[in-house]
């Protein structure tokens, strides 16, 4: 969803409603990135709500309204990193219930669900850091340069990590098939 820069402008002036509107436009993206990175809804909710508060408090320091999206993603990324740092070495399990509603029934749902499950299991083979890169570059469609800026990492590092991670993901998915 495109961010309304006028609303960002108003939010910078302290308008709570405008901030809420801007957040509404990006909330699902934030949650998705957090969920893929952290693997469970509980922690994802924590970091998104912390990001929301931090962004609101710091919105006046945002210099360019057009940069709102990468700016808030960067805040989210830092919060995710902190959360990941608190895990015991490499939390790789994903809470499947937070990704899928397995109670649904219907034609073809079984096949779809098994495809989705295969993807979730493939994601479990990645570290949280790798999943964060995937969430930004694959799910959200950021370029390598944008992903690197959000993660605060060198472009070359992100590029090689992304390349390696996608190879790994793809081979795991193909094995599962």
């Amino acid at each position: 969803m495109v961010i309304d820069t006028n609303a960002v402008k108003q939010a910078r002036l302290g308008d709570k409603d405008s901030f809420a509107e801007v957040y509404r436009q990006i909330s699902e993206d934030l949650y998705r990135v957090a969920l893929y990175s952290l693997g469970n809804a509980h922690d994802a909710q924590d970091v998104v709500s912390e990001t929301f508060m931090e962004a609101y408090k710091g919105i006046k320091n945002l210099r360019d309204e057009n940069s709102f999206r990468p700016w808030i993603m960067r805040i989210l990324s830092i919060r995710c990193k902190r959360k990941i740092g608190q895990y015991i070495t490499g939390r790789n399990q994903l809470d499947i219930d937070d990704f899928l509603d397995l109670t649904e029934e219907g034609d073809g749902l079984e096949e779809t669900s098994s495809r989705k499950l295969a993807l979730i299991h493939a994601l479990e083979g990645l570290t949280p850091q790798e999943r964060e890169i995937v969430a930004l570059a694959v799910v959200q469609g950021y370029t390598v340069r944008e992903t690197a800026e959000i993660l605060g990492a060198p472009q070359g590092t992100v590029s090689s990590k992304l390349h390696r991670t996608l190879k790994k993901l793809r081979s795991q998915l193909e094995t599962a098939i």
């Binding site: 509107e21 949650y31 508060m53 993807l119």
Partner: peptide, 26 residues
Amino acid sequence: LRGRFQELSQEIKLPHSLDPEVLCQR
């Protein structure tokens, strides 16, 4: 992979606790 992720992402819904209205109360 984008196609595969798109399928999975469709199921991910924003929890109520992260609704703008709920968070704005804070």
